[in-house]
Amino acid sequence: MNAALVYALTGTALFVLGVAGLILQPHLLRKILAFNIMGSGIFLVMVGLAQRAGTPDPVPQAMVLTGIVVAIAATALALALARQLLDMSGEMRLPEEKSGKDRLDV
């Protein structure tokens, strides 16, 4: 098992964690964080798998950078929406998930 595969597997694990969080956590903040974890996992896979013969490949680096920018934008938008939702409904959850337990309630 080389380092690249370790990266990739870790990345995959992070991705799965992220997806699980995104799906299962009712709290919006948790969802947004989960999305970021998921993104990090993807980036890890990307960088990890792309190592050929030890030399770093510039293309995935560029892609990951772009990806991070996009993720930041998305996170910002999500946070803005979540705040607005909190202002309006006093809840940090989507209405269909009101029944879920949530310790981070603000």
Partner: peptide, 12 residues
């Protein structure tokens, strides 16, 4: 996200 993971795998 899922799409991007696919892209990563392809590139890999």
């Amino acid at each position: 996200g899922a799409y991007l993971l696919g892209v990563a795998l392809l590139y890999g």
